[in-house]
Amino acid sequence: MSSEDSAEHEPVDLEDVDADPSAYDALEDAEVAMRVNEHGLYIVDDEETGVSSQGGTPEEAVANLAEAVASHEQAMSGGSGDDWL
């Protein structure tokens, strides 16, 4: 991997940023990974569902992921999802 490739997706340790996934019901027991892309956006992934989201700060990225995972879970459980359209 070139140094340019690693700069595009630099991993971030959640313990080093002020973002706690367990503070959100949808992420309470989730295994979450975070990285920073070449544009400085924080990208977070829920390893179990495969859902990803992003944000300008670690906190925003985790909050966006929690919302996306909740929507994913609702869709997978047969909910209409109309409330978020």
Rank of each mutant, 00 (worst) to 15 (best):
S2T: 12
S2D: 15
S3P: 05
S3Q: 13
S3D: 15
E4K: 12
E4I: 14
E4M: 11
D5W: 09
D5R: 09
S6K: 13
S6D: 12
A7M: 13
A7E: 15
E8S: 09
E8I: 12
H9I: 06
H9Y: 14
E10Y: 06
E10W: 08
V12M: 09
V12N: 04
V12E: 05
L14Q: 01
E15C: 07
D16G: 09
D16E: 13
D16V: 11
V17Y: 04
V17I: 13
D18C: 10
A19D: 06
D20T: 11
D20A: 14
P21D: 07
P21H: 05
S22C: 10
A23T: 07
A23N: 07
L27Y: 04
L27I: 10
E28V: 12
E28P: 01
E28L: 12
E28F: 03
A30M: 02
E31S: 10
E31D: 15
E31H: 13
V32E: 04
V32N: 00
V32Y: 03
V32F: 00
A33M: 11
A33W: 00
M34S: 08
M34K: 00
R35M: 04
R35C: 13
V36Y: 00
V36C: 07
N37G: 08
E38A: 14
E38L: 12
H39C: 12
G40N: 02
G40Y: 03
L41S: 07
I43V: 15
V44K: 00
V44F: 01
D46T: 07
E47H: 08
G50D: 05
G50T: 11
V51E: 02
V51S: 00
S52Y: 10
S52M: 07
Q54N: 09
G55Q: 01
G56Y: 09
P58E: 02
P58R: 05
P58D: 00
E59G: 15
E60I: 06
E60F: 11
A61I: 03
A61D: 01
V62K: 00
V62F: 02
A63R: 03
A63Q: 08
A63W: 03
A63Y: 06
A63P: 05
N64L: 06
L65H: 05
A66W: 00
E67R: 06
E67V: 10
E67C: 10
E67T: 11
A68Q: 02
V69E: 07
A70R: 01
H72C: 14
H72D: 14
H72W: 13
Q74N: 14
Q74F: 14
A75R: 05
M76Y: 02
M76R: 05
M76F: 05
M76H: 04
M76N: 10
S77V: 08
S77Q: 05
G79S: 14
G79N: 09
S80H: 09
G81E: 09
G81H: 05
D82C: 12
D82A: 14
D82S: 07
D83Q: 15
W84M: 10
L85T: 11
L85G: 06
